[in-house]
Design a protein around this nucleic acid. Structure first.
Lengths: 143, 143
DNA sequence: TTGCAAATAAGAATGATTATCATTTGTGAC
DNA sequence: GTCACAAATGATAATCATTCTTATTTGCAA
């Protein structure tokens, strides 16, 4: 997936903390992680990286295009691997479960809405907040 | 627009600070205001209300359905009068100008996207970040 | 190897927002 | 209209996510 020195190709020294954060995203079962979650997961696996470094690295990865940042409700940023294809998100308000979707019609209508008003789109964010209704949904917002 | 005791009808005592905040939203040229902006505008007009009260009142108004809260990029909440009709937002990344739009197709496709996956929609937020390309656009993000 | 710019870690600082608590103020009962 | 008291306010401390500072460490090119 990533060559060991993939970081170099995006202009970043391949340091230990950066490699750990990147592998975490590649290995994690959970696709969407906050800085705090990355910090705690690394601590748990014995790799303790400073929280400030996590924030710095996540921001650098975002700028390098390796990660994408999202602002779900709750006031904290979450990150996911950028694997090219754009998509939007449905977030379960009960258990925090996130599902991704892509709808070409929605994308097209957005472009029309913007250009009709003379705007040039840079980016957009669409979050649907819902109940996932899954039997396993613990009905409790994950911290 | 609002009777003087409109606040009572939503279960809130009609106090001076609350009346001032409400009139500000009804009178303001700018439809979307942050807590800090409300605070400063009231200060300017001689009505000084504590910042903590502003935050409290804005949250109460949101819960009462008088205001709607939005999270544009930039980490602060902005509020606008809730006048019933749902709409989404295009935000100019240069000057902060906000334009509203409603697209029935987008709304419908969102509902489909969610129900197809077994979700029950509570709410959604769609923000388009763009350049407004207006001649008067000062090309600078407003604080 | 060695040297040094770049990166890290720890903790201080920041900005938005919320909590605390003593004081003030609507409001319903008289 | 006046009173009494619960509810609301204001000042300030506290909190939470995030960024900055600075001394120390580390990747990497010569």
């Amino acid at each position: 997936m990533h060559q060991p020195d993939h970081l170099k190709t995006v202009g970043l020294k391949s340091t230990l903390p950066r490699l750990k954060v990147l592998s975490l995203f590649e290995a994690s079962k959970q696709r969407h992680l906050s800085a705090e979650e990355v910090y705690k997961l690394l601590l748990t696996s014995g790799d303790d990286v400073g929280l400030a470094t996590i924030y710095r690295v996540l921001t650098q990865f975002e700028q390098a295009g390796l990660l994408m940042r999202h602002h779900f409700e709750g006031g904290k940023s979450v990150f996911e691997l950028n694997q090219g294809e754009h998509h939007d998100h449905i977030v379960c308000m009960q258990c925090g479960h996130v599902e991704e979707f892509y709808d070409a019609t929605i994308e097209a209508r957005q472009k029309i809405a913007a250009t009709d008003r003379g705007f040039t789109i840079h980016d957009h964010s669409l979050y649907i907040y819902a109940d996932c209704n899954k039997p396993k949904c613990p009905n409790k917002i994950q911290s």
